[in-house]
Simulated scan of single mutants.
Amino acid sequence: MSINTVANRQYAAITGIGGYVPQSKRTNYDLEKVCDTSDEWIVKRTGIKERRILEHDLATSDMAVKAIQDLALQYNKNLSDVDALLVATSTPDMPMPATANIIAEKLGLRNVWAFDMNAACSGFLYALDMAASLVETGRYKNVLVVGADNISRYVNIYDRSTNILFGDGAGVVWLEPSQEGGIMDAYLTSNGGGREFLTIEAGGSLYPIEANAIETESRYLRQDGKTVFKHAVQSMSDACTKVLHRNNLQIADVNWLVPHQANQRIIDAVGRSLNIPEGRALSNIEYLGNTIAATIPLCIWQNIKQINTGDLIMLTAFGAGFSWGASLLRWMI
């Protein structure tokens, strides 16, 4: 095993992780009551049995706050030490201000650099890479990276192509400087070629929300499942392979693969494409569904007991845009 290293390099290491999922559940049996589907059909095609749904009087920021508070409690972190807060989300509380600003206010953070990033389901990896760069430069020492989405608000409950997949949740990691290891490498990219295949059209400057638009299909998440499936498997596999090759690694050197939790069939297909040993691709999609930018931190958070200090972890994601990529990190907790 070999990893390209630089003498005296400062890494950004994950030193804490937290998560939050709403209490309310939407099961496959609930969906059987509103559309032509069945528990057997959903499980066979997605691996999902239920997903969490946020209460109507709460928003994305509320889940993020709960996740951050969970991290602070579990890892004895002082939130007053936070220098920067990056929030990956496609479902901000409102168009402005940034949800990161709202989270900062709710947590009582003052003079913190806080902003949102939208790269859909790839958002957490994009935000993690940017946060790592902030730490590596030495300008910031304690950075929170949140992945949070209240995507159920944008799902048409009667649309079988989307209602079976998506749920709500938030995950967060704390980054600090380390000389020992942390975020080792990342390859992230997008091409804009997937706009028509995975989209929420209404709500922006092109199709602003107006009284008549609120009742139209344009306000809901729409996707072409077959096209997304094909591109997701190929893109995530290619991104992981690229990161492995430029770090002189084989897939056998990786302790854990943490793919975006879009669909269990996609997770399995990426694992087969990479030829990763059985049991080394982590998953938690069965009871949470696809939580967009929250899937990767939530997956690590819920599987934390399997991960050991020093483990090499490959993260990979694919989302609307299309956007995709992979990150390689050494687990330092």
Rank of each mutant, 00 (worst) to 15 (best):
158 Y>I: 01
199 T>H: 14
226 K>N: 11
213 A>V: 13
209 I>N: 12
188 L>A: 02
202 A>L: 09
138 G>H: 09
154 Y>I: 05
170 A>M: 03
186 A>D: 03
196 E>R: 12
194 G>A: 10
176 E>W: 02
207 Y>N: 13
223 Q>E: 09
214 I>F: 13
162 T>G: 10
171 G>W: 01
162 T>I: 05
183 I>S: 00
175 L>N: 01
220 Y>D: 08
150 N>C: 09
177 P>D: 06
205 S>I: 12
223 Q>R: 06
194 G>Q: 13
160 R>V: 04
151 I>R: 04
182 G>L: 01
181 G>P: 03
237 S>Q: 09
205 S>Q: 13
174 W>Y: 15
230 K>S: 14
163 N>A: 04
199 T>C: 09
158 Y>K: 14
201 E>G: 11
225 G>C: 07
233 V>T: 09
164 I>G: 00
210 E>F: 11
223 Q>S: 13
160 R>H: 01
196 E>I: 09
206 L>N: 12
192 G>K: 08
216 T>S: 14
128 L>D: 03
170 A>K: 03
155 V>N: 05
215 E>L: 11
206 L>F: 13
214 I>Y: 12
179 Q>W: 10
182 G>H: 01
228 V>I: 11
184 M>R: 08
197 F>G: 10
175 L>C: 01
132 A>S: 14
134 L>A: 07
187 Y>P: 02
161 S>K: 14
156 N>S: 06
186 A>G: 06
173 V>T: 06
204 G>I: 04
169 G>H: 04
182 G>Y: 00
209 I>D: 08
163 N>H: 03
205 S>F: 07
230 K>G: 10
164 I>C: 07
208 P>L: 04
165 L>Y: 01
134 L>C: 04
222 R>C: 11
191 N>A: 06
191 N>K: 09
234 Q>Y: 15
172 V>N: 04
219 R>C: 10
170 A>P: 03
129 D>A: 10
167 G>H: 06
184 M>Q: 15
